[in-house]
Design a protein around this nucleic acid. Sequence first.
DNA 1: TGTACATCAGTGAACGCGCGTTCACTGATGTAC
DNA 2: TGTACATCAGTGAACGCGCGTTCACTGATGTAC
Lengths: 242, 242
Amino acid sequence: MLAGVNIGLMESSGSAAARKRSYHHGDLRNALISAAATLAAEGGPDSVSIRAAARMVGVTPTAAYRHFAGQDELLGAAKDRALAELTDSMTKELAARPKSSDPIRYALGSLAALGRGYLSFARAQPGLFRTVFFWEGAPGEFLDEEDRPPNNPFQLLLSSLDELVAVGYLSQERRRMSEYTAWAMVHGLAVLFDGPLRELPAETRDEAVVQSMVTFAHGLSARGLTPAQENLLTDEMRTLTR
Amino acid sequence: MLAGVNIGLMESSGSAAARKRSYHHGDLRNALISAAATLAAEGGPDSVSIRAAARMVGVTPTAAYRHFAGQDELLGAAKDRALAELTDSMTKELAARPKSSDPIRYALGSLAALGRGYLSFARAQPGLFRTVFFWEGAPGEFLDEEDRPPNNPFQLLLSSLDELVAVGYLSQERRRMSEYTAWAMVHGLAVLFDGPLRELPAETRDEAVVQSMVTFAHGLSARGLTPAQENLLTDEMRTLTR
DNA sequence: TGTACATCAGTGAACGCGCGTTCACTGATGTAC
DNA sequence: TGTACATCAGTGAACGCGCGTTCACTGATGTAC
């Protein structure tokens, strides 16, 4: 692989560092996906074009058609990658949450961790976040249960809510539809902070996140949160990664 | 105005019904804004272009530059219009809400009405809704308190929450940040229903709206909702306009 | 181990598209006298 | 009341841009014998 590579004579026309390894790239498909993801990260889904990705990799636009049927497919691949990164962000928070012998505290902590992972990804990678949720008319990937991977963000949320039922915090009755309420709340915060509430001071944003989480968890329970539980949630959400 | 209008000889080239009134249009600026709003309604903010709007009105693209500095300004005007329609949808629901002698019921009904107006607009006019919240780097119009009109959606929400404090439903403490929680929840629902949850059956969507509203209102009150209040909210949100 | 040849993965040029924007212009309007 | 003329609101042609996509092609790879 590495031997026998023809570096080639640098023609006068080729000024940039492109075309380093001449002709056969070796892993063009993945290189293009990475380029597409970079474009998405920098300018959102609208910036993902075959021409720009090819340019970035140092290859002719035509070459991309060996690996993708068209622009849709490249964008789709970038979307998959962005979704994987969102999932990563959530599972990492989940794995890092503090242990607790109190099962309710632990379950509430899990829910908070998921929200944190979601919101910090949206804040850190607004372009990728927008790419995940870019819809032009594609079917609802999040809902196709067949091919939904077990660590899909939505699946993680479902498990977390089920856990809250299992530990006796959440009643079956209030469990209904709570996945949509939870998702909507956290998604709404993410979207508004990247849009009309962009100018909101960081401290206010953080406080809004905390209070939203508290209000939601409070609303889920028939008895309401105990002060200790409320403190837990407040602390959990305050540690939102910048 | 209407007299002395030169209909002009129809050249062979002009096949469409364009150029009805020949040369001076009379109200080109507004015509272009309406065209831009129509484009936004049909294809979202990305579809708003000077060329398309001019074409729709039956005028040369250049003519638009008499009335707008550039595409940004046309899009801005379309955005203003879309925002006005969103505001309309909310104030109409507010005006139509049932009277009640119980001030808490009335205040909760107002909050529900605002949510209803927001969500039904998003559902009925997804293109305009997306246009309102299209951000490329513009400042936060919703937060500039100086020129925020009194019937701005956000202002309506603030008033409604203040009312809930005034009637004794909501404590000062829980009032803090609740405008962001409320907005995020309802905005999240609107956005998800137009995106990843697009395939959700209509009944499920409606139920998710109801349960979100109940959970939120429940979470706001230290005591929780009474069964009667919960029923009220459920009924209020069920009547969501299709 | 060496060579002929099929196949594979790129190149380079070109097409047509819609866009934003600018230019020099001209027809219509309205105002000063 | 009539006319000269400034001003205003359009036209029409053109520019350059980046895009998606297709075409005939060629250099590199790897496999059969």
